[in-house]
Design a protein around this nucleic acid. Structure first.
Lengths: 328, 328
DNA sequence: CTGAAAGCGCTTACAG
DNA sequence: CTGAAAGCGCTTACAG
């Protein structure tokens, strides 16, 4: 691997001068500039980013830590964040931790160790302590609200989302609504469920709950169980779209008409939810806004830290084909 | 940010000794070891990975460059590769380049610049020259077969896959099969189409082709066009599963029964293809094998380079619900 | 077993 | 405008 000294030697200048023309950080006589440029050309020289970032203490990198790369919601978020980072001259370093708290913590440490300029964390669990130790880089936490020395919190109003969903299901005439709740160790799982629970409490509706992980197979299995346990169900509030899609699959297989016999609503509004047939009614999360704000927050922190700010984004109901209003 | 000198000072030893206990790279007296461990504990010291990798010339990182993070096929590949890398003590650095050749090239250079230990590239185009310059790190190219100074090539037998698909469609009684072909600048798009073309040539079938990008919206639009252009179509070979899913959506919307009136087959066998209803018949790619082999190849290269090896994996047809054999 | 020294490849004051 | 020098934070021969 060629280095800056080699290039300097070839061009007959000092390494400092080479550095200056590469970075445009000071004026260099046109003649030497040309010689340097030629030497770079001739050698295919690419400056060693590691050495550079050791000196600069910045890697021009933002880390993103997500619980699962197999969930399109996270993937869509990552795609948007990636775009934004690139636009601003940063790289996005995606860490997939597979809902493993140790890996999550390791990822955070690694980001710190590679001089990342900031990290965006979607915690694998709301109980974790990943944020408890003071980190040397700005940390924006998404989809969680635990307390810790974090730069900023950012999440959607899931509680409100669940209420919206329930209201809608009731408007559609459902009387026996069961909630397939996600992992209760998770902020999204918890607050969506609490939204459902409170709605039931307020309206004197009996709670009907089934527990489920955020993945296809769990969704398939739990739907079977749900039908067993609540044979008269006429409305289902799924903890997220991928589970809702699994749910639909089982209903379809059993020839249960949707939305005529059972109405179904998901959460997230991933791209697939409007691609399947029938299209899924769901609670839409403003992923793009979420990503923009998150990126703003991590990068702004670089200058002045406004610790612990809380930012809550609103959520909307998107009615599509798996629910139908009574009067319609 | 605390550094190794601080820790050494606290423990009353030299930085070299601290380094030795951290890395277990030489024996240290038990007493000093304890003092060092305590100092590390007390300061929450995390060694600076940048400095370390500057010295070692290895970042314990493998880069993965994909054209699009929004295509589940790439995402599933990334998930598997991530698992494998972690298992072997490497990080996976995912670069999403959005089918942009400049970004692809930049990503490769960046990986080189950060002392990555190797790169796995899924090229955005078969025409690109990303591999033309000698790289200083091992490069395994997936889903492409261009010629260049690459460590290894690895792809599935798409040509064969397309033939399998055609055979199946014909067995199912289709007479007017149209091929929604993917980008012809792409190896997968090209070889799948060529498989279709050659099958048609051999069996004296008229080619019916429509061009499409690898994404949902394109799939939606091109299916409309296809129906316009080939009103008597009774079989569709889609360039990949996400396009096939879009195609199904349009057929469903128009009340065209699948597979009774039109039979449909995809390519890739992403997780979603068996989750939608009806389940999609498709050509299965052995993603896990692909990932394992790719990881083996990049890492093995570290020791001795076997330049330009070509590895072709077989592909299988998975019949599900969007096709039906005549006799069935 | 242990420390002082040199070096990984850059960049930036500091002089001139 | 330009070079010599010091330093970013580690690690590993080299002595002892």
């Amino acid at each position: 691997m060629i280095n800056i000294r080699e290039v300097a030697r070839l061009a007959g200048v000092s390494p400092a001068t080479v550095s200056r023309v590469i970075n445009g950080t000071a004026s260099v006589s046109e003649e030497k500039r040309q010689r340097v440029l030629q030497a770079i050309e001739a050698t295919d020289f690419v400056p060693n980013e590691v050495a550079r970032s050791l000196f600069k203490r910045s890697a021009k990198t933002i880390g993103l830590i997500i619980p699962s790369i197999r969930n399109p919601y996270f993937t869509e978020l990552a795609a948007k964040l990636d775009e934004l980072a690139t636009q601003r001259g940063y790289r996005l370093f995606l860490h997939n931790v597979g809902y493993d708290l140790d890996q999550e913590w390791a990822a955070l440490q690694q980001l710190e160790a590679i001089n990342a300029d900031g990290a965006i964390l979607v915690p694998s669990s709301n109980d974790d302590r990943a944020d408890q130790r003071e980190l040397s880089i700005p940390l924006v936490v998404l989809d969680s609200d635990f307390n810790g020395p974090v730069s900023a919190y950012l999440y959607c109003d899931y509680y409100q989302g669940a209420q919206l969903a329930m209201e809608h299901l009731v408007d559609c005439g459902c009387r026996e609504i069961v909630c397939i709740r996600g992992p209760q160790s998770t902020f999204s799982g918890r607050s969506r469920y609490v939204g459902y629970r409170d709605y039931c409490l307020e309206h004197h509706i009996r709670q009907r709950v089934v527990d489920c992980d955020y993945d296809f197979n769990a969704g398939l299995a739990m739907t079977e169980e749900l039908l067993e346990r609540y044979p008269k169900v006429d409305g289902i509030l799924a903890c997220n779209d991928i589970v809702a899609i699994s749910t639909y699959k089982i209903l379809h297989k059993r020839n249960i008409p949707v939305p005529d016999q059972i109405q179904l609503i998901g959460f997230d509004d991933i791209a697939f939810s409007s691609l399947i047939s029938p299209e899924l009614t769901t609670i839409h999360q403003p992923i793009d806004d979420l990503a923009s704000l998150a990126m703003d927050l991590v990068l702004r922190q670089e200058e002045r830290a406004v610790k612990g700010g809380r930012h809550i984004l609103p959520v909307t109901l998107v009615q599509r084909e798996t629910t139908k209003r009574k009067d319609a």
